[in-house]
């Protein structure tokens, strides 16, 4: 199971669904920070840290990494606040920073970690399902399998699968987060799903997926 679930779904405000008061509060906080009131940044952290942490859980494979990434994202946002355009939505800007950090993190991990050879896949992962245990166990195993398969994909593939299929964000929002055109995102999503399916089949050929 993705630990991110425990923190609740990531909520990235889409057009029109964020309360105007919230935006005003954020704008004031940003202006106050830029005017020298460092403590005003707390407002922004309090409003968004759960969502950012949940999103980072999707990218990182353990809670400690996710928390470090979320923390770094807020610090990076603080450092770059002078370049933030107040006409933009703060949450979109913040998530963009966080996602870029997460991708860098994954890339650096990919370089330092070599994937486990296939024969090291824990046997228990499949044994339980074949024996037909309860649904919760099966779901957990399936999830672990998906995670393993995901870790073999490129960072860009994982990004689109996380944002589109796990976070279930509309393409327009993913466009705002990644800066890529919708058409390119749709193509990438289709290809990433195909590659994920292939990876799953390789990991669990006995299971019809």
């Amino acid at each position: 199971m993705y630990p991110g679930r425990a923190l609740g779904r990531t909520t990235i405000a889409t057009d029109g669904d964020e309360d105007t008061d919230g935006r005003v509060v954020e704008r004031r906080a940003i202006e106050a920070v830029l005017a020298g009131e460092r403590a005003a940044f707390r407002v922004l952290v309090e409003r968004h840290h759960r969502g950012v942490q949940a999103m980072m859980m999707r990218f990182a494979r353990n809670g400690a990494d996710a928390e470090d990434l979320a923390q770094s994202a807020f610090v990076a946002a603080f450092d770059a606040l002078g370049r933030f355009d107040v006409e933009q939505r703060f949450s979109t800007w913040l998530y963009r920073i966080a996602i870029n950090l997460a991708k860098d993190h994954l890339k650096s991990k990919k370089r330092t970690e070599t994937a486990l050879p296939d024969d090291e896949v824990p046997e228990a992962l499949f044994a339980g399902r074949i024996a037909g245990t309860d649904e919760a166990t099966q779901a957990r195993q399936r999830q672990a399998l998906v995670e393993r398969a995901m870790s073999t994909l490129s960072v860009e593939d994982r990004e689109i699968l996380i944002l589109k299929d796990l976070e279930e964000l509309p393409f327009e929002e993913i466009k705002a987060l990644t800066g890529r055109p919708v058409t390119a995102l749709k193509i990438r999503a289709v290809r990433a799903r195909a590659r994920l399916r292939a990876a799953l089949e390789k990991l669990a050929p006995r299971e019809a997926l």
């Binding site: 403590a39 940044f41 707390r42 952290v45 309090e46 840290h49 942490q53 928390e67 979320a70 923390q71 807020f74 610090v75």
Partner: peptide
């Protein structure tokens, strides 16, 4: 978490 961020 918030405190840690603010300390940083």
């Amino acid at each position: 978490f918030v405190d840690r961020v603010m300390r940083q």
